[in-house]
Write a protein that binds this DNA or RNA. Structure first.
Lengths: 208, 208
DNA sequence: TATGATATAGTTCATATGAACTATATGGAT
DNA sequence: ATCCATATAGTTCATATGAACTATATCATA
């Protein structure tokens, strides 16, 4: 297997990045990600780490450094990054920085089917989403201010990005709510369903 | 099993929404989603549709309407939504509209590890991402203008949302690129790694 | 000194995902 | 008359995910 074939996921990237610093064992990776608040941001689940490590070992991107125990703790396996691992990491990182990827989001799905609610209820729920977004914004802002004293800013850009995206979503959601509230965007499920019947007819006939 | 226990995914939501219009078979669902351009937006893969349908049937949210064949085509199974399905759909929809969810994104992962590139290369790659984002924006804008003549606007809000988010990302990325370019945000991997050694020490010792 | 909370270090397993495959039908081009 | 591209309608299978579980060690507190 060629290491180039591996499409690196977020866990793989994170593991390679940590091992570029120094060899370490999986539990230390978890602790470091937690200390650096990367675990909240990257939404990584414990269970997936060991699978990711397994894939990286099989792909030759990392190797076992040593195994051993400290005191009477269970045995730890330390890993180190290989030269291929470093190459694959940098290449993958360059690609994901330069290439935006369409990622499915719950919010898009929700909006896709907003027509199934009546405008009044949609308004209420969008307002609630707005409030929830603002609460998250406040929370992240506070945390960011707190850590920016100790941590170099380059290590916080992803939090700045998250904040910017949350603010943009909040603004957009409020705009939509306002438009519905003011009657600039109206709909009626029943008449929409009549329209839909036409497109179903086309779809059921298949291609011409 | 209670239908309330089912955490509905995007495919499940989509299937239930379509079956609220009328009973239909899986292939017609695919055609309808395609006709309405929801497949691009929702990033749904063919193979997952049948699994989602299986889950919904087992959960009692949909049921078999009839099976039959047209001409010598393979047999088709039509499904209909049940009253529980309608309830679960509306409840789930209300929840995902009102509740923003943290979703892992490639971009956040990329930014998290931007420190591993040097500032000059980071600038180049961010500029490339900006260009790619703008190309996507142009493409979606064009499509949106094209279909908005035939399609009620409520059925296009998710595209408007996507466009707004892409624009926000583009603006933010360009801002970051500019800051790095102007030397307002600087870093040096080696000195960062020295800092990191301190936190690794903390992490390797575990809790106090 | 007993007790509960948390840290350490993973493994297991049910379920989810999506790429690839199967198999036939139809229409248009040659 | 034949061949190819595409439409129809799914199924299969390897891999990925993440919740839950195992099992011990250490520390703080009562």
């Amino acid at each position: 297997m060629n290491y180039m074939d591996l499409e690196l996921g977020i866990w793989e990237i994170a593991v390679l990045a940590l091992l570029r610093e120094a060899p370490m064992h999986p539990y230390q990776m978890q602790r470091l990600l937690h200390l650096r608040h990367k675990d909240e941001i990257l939404a990584l689940k414990r269970g997936s780490l060991y699978h990711a490590i397994g894939r990286l070992v099989r792909g030759g991107l990392i190797g076992v450094e040593k195994t051993g125990r400290e005191g009477k703790r269970p045995e730890r396996t330390s890993y180190r990054i290989t030269p291929e691992g470093t190459r694959a990491f940098l290449e993958s990182l360059r690609t994901i920085v330069a290439t935006p990827r369409r990622e499915p989001s719950q919010c898009m799905a929700a909006l896709s089917f907003l027509v199934h609610l009546n405008p009044k209820e949609a308004c209420r729920l969008l307002a609630e989403r707005g409030k929830n977004l603002d609460a998250e914004i406040a929370q992240h802002s506070t945390r960011l201010r707190g850590v920016s004293a100790h941590v170099a800013r380059i290590n916080l850009v992803e939090s700045e990005y998250l904040l910017a995206m949350l603010k943009a979503e909040s603004a957009w959601i409020r705009g939509l709510e306002k438009e519905i509230h003011q009657g600039k965007l109206v709909w009626d499920l029943k008449s929409i369903l009549r329209e839909a019947a036409a497109s179903r007819k086309v779809a059921s006939q298949g291609r011409k």
